[in-house]
């Protein structure tokens, strides 16, 4: 599905006329199964390791030329409220009380999940958001309209908008340090993490690592890799000893890739374009070929306005 759609983007750029018909049947076809580029990267977070030092926030801001962190890193008062990502914070660490007694609090790093089939990219009407073959979902501000439908579509409440920027407002979110990855590096957060709670690698490898970690510590971890199947899979994977529902993870997002939800509707578009003219034209002919009503004051019923002169 993905490759065909990507291919479709390229070919579609030639003829705007076909745009009327909406996505073609080819783009909508799922016969050609594509399970993602095998070399795409992933990030695995072991939540039981995170110590909440927020050094990843700091590194992220440095890597993305964002203003420095507001609260000092050792100021634990930031954890009193659950924070979300915003235009100046691509990643935030939140603290959640451990539901098990006498266990330390759990810190959860939050950022763009870089879905395998991103809702935001399928929401974007100009293709400003795009899933790269390396894995990151990247954003092109130069073509963005600022409709913010991506923010509606994102099930994780990640994309943020520069509401205070009048001239060049942008959708802001984690880029998975796309440039660094392409240059052979790793995202800044994974690099800085002092306890190596974030592991960067090939997504396929990380899944095995996560499974092994759960298997080798029987009874300790939740038997679930968050992001393996959620919304069709995400680049970021999480393992935890505490149920994900208690850690602010949305657990009602399902495993269906979000583009699937609008696929049925979009496939109906060409049908309407083909069937409606015939149907409506037929109605028109039928309605205007009937016998004129016998007793009409103003005379005969006329076919069309153009004949009136």
């Amino acid at each position: 599905m993905k490759s065909t759609r990507r291919h479709f983007f390229k070919t579609m750029a030639t003829g705007a006329g076909t745009m009327l018909l909406g996505p073609s049947a080819k783009a909508m076809s799922s016969v050609e199964q594509f399970n993602g580029y095998p070399e795409r990267v992933g990030m695995l977070v072991d939540l039981s390791l995170c110590i909440g030092c927020r050094r990843c926030e700091e590194a992220c801001k440095r890597a993305n030329q964002l203003p420095p962190v507001e609260a000092p890193l050792n100021d634990s008062s930031v954890f009193e409220h659950t924070r979300r990502t915003d235009a100046e914070n691509y990643t935030v660490v939140n603290r959640f009380a451990n539901p098990q007694p006498n266990q330390p609090a759990v810190y959860v790093k939050k950022q763009c999940m870089h879905c395998e089939e991103p809702a935001c990219a399928s929401a974007c009407l100009v293709g400003a958001l795009r899933k790269t073959k390396e894995g990151p979902v990247v954003y092109n501000p130069d073509i963005c309209l600022g409709c913010r439908y991506c923010m509606i579509a994102c099930p994780f409440y990640i994309p943020a908008y520069e509401y205070h920027n009048p001239t060049s407002p942008k959708v802001r979110k984690c880029t998975l340090c796309y440039e660094r990855i392409k240059a052979g590096g790793m995202p800044a957060c994974a690099e800085i993490c002092p306890v190596e709670a974030i592991t960067f690698g090939k997504r396929s490898d990380l899944i095995k690592l996560a499974q092994a970690q759960i298997l080798n510590n029987p009874g300790e971890y939740q038997n679930h890799i968050y992001g393996l199947d959620e919304v069709g899979g995400t680049t970021w994977l999480y393992i935890s000893k505490v149920p994900f529902a208690k850690l602010g993870f949305p657990t009602d997002v399902g495993t269906t890739p979000f583009p699937e939800y609008t696929r049925g509707f979009l496939s109906a578009v060409p049908v309407v374009f083909v069937v409606w003219p015939a149907l409506l034209g037929g109605f028109h002919l039928f309605a205007n070929n009937r016998q004129p009503a016998p007793a009409q004051e103003d005379g005969v019923t006329r076919n069309d306005e153009e004949t009136e002169q």
Binding site: D46, G52, P194, V195, E196, T199
Partner: peptide
């Protein structure tokens, strides 16, 4: 591998897992 952190992770996990809790200082 996850089970074997690098040297940085190995040191910090040992130190910070306890120290951050009582000194609240990271």
């Amino acid at each position: 591998s996850l089970a074997k952190p690098g040297l940085k992770g190995a040191y910090h996990r040992l130190c910070l897992n306890c120290h951050r809790e009582w000194s609240h200082e990271t």
